[in-house]
């Protein structure tokens, strides 16, 4: 098998593992005293981690010139979307049990839920336009502009986490630091490209 394929499948497996592990925990009474809270938070954690991971290939490309990494982007991004959808489903179905009035009140009153829902809305748009044909239909320029929305999604997801936590900001700070590095790498590359005049090779 081509090396690129192996990497692709390895990343695919790594991102499925948390879901499989959740299944094992559920089957073995391993979800603790408040399983609904556990499941919701677990899925939220992995949605955020996958979302940050989706920003990694471009950074790897910039830093190490690993162009192949970019081919992982869509799959990782779709995983982030999948975990985010499961996370919201856990909130809507398990936690609130379709109490739409309570859910709506949460969305408009509690800023961490507002931010979380906005994240999922953005990710849904990106997922819906993630197939190859969408690039052609929207035009490469529009598509690219739309998919820069992933930065907004990542920022909102970090805010959602930070606003949700009661007192201990260690977890949110760690994830935000990773996001800062990923964005910093892009910014450094962007300014460098603008400042260095192009030389003919």
């Amino acid at each position: 098998m081509h090396r690129q394929r192996i990497v692709w499948w390895a990343v695919f497996a790594a991102l499925s593992a948390p879901l499989a592990w959740l299944g094992v925990l559920a089957a073995t009474d391993g979800l603790g005293a408040n399983p609904i809270e556990f499941v919701t938070r677990y899925l939220g954690d992995w949605a955020l981690r996958a979302l940050l991971a989706a920003l990694a290939p471009t950074a790897l490309n910039i830093l190490f010139g690993w162009t192949g990494a970019v081919r992982l982007r869509r799959m990782v991004g779709l995983y982030a979307f999948a975990y985010a959808v499961l996370h919201v489903s856990s909130y809507v179905v398990l936690d609130q049990f379709f109490d739409w009035a309570a859910i709506w009140a949460d969305v408009i009153k509690r800023k961490y839920i507002t931010a979380g829902m906005a994240t999922v809305a953005i990710l849904s748009l990106l997922a819906a336009t993630s197939w190859a044909g969408a690039v052609r239909r929207l035009g490469a320029k529009t598509w690219k502009r739309l998919h820069r929305g992933v930065y907004a999604a990542a920022l909102l997801a970090c805010l959602h986490y930070a606003w949700m936590v009661k007192a201990d900001l260690t977890g949110p700070a760690l994830h935000a630091a990773v996001l800062a590095v990923l964005l910093g790498v892009r910014m450094a590359a962007f300014t460098k490209k603008r400042l260095t005049p192009l030389r003919p090779r």
Binding site: G23, V24, A26, A27, T28, D29, G30
Partner: peptide, 18 residues
């Protein structure tokens, strides 16, 4: 129901962990 729902096999294998 909860215990059976997600998969007995996985449960048996991982049981001692818990």
């Amino acid at each position: 129901f909860l215990k059976l729902g997600v998969g007995l096999a996985a449960g048996m294998a991982a049981g001692p962990l818990f």
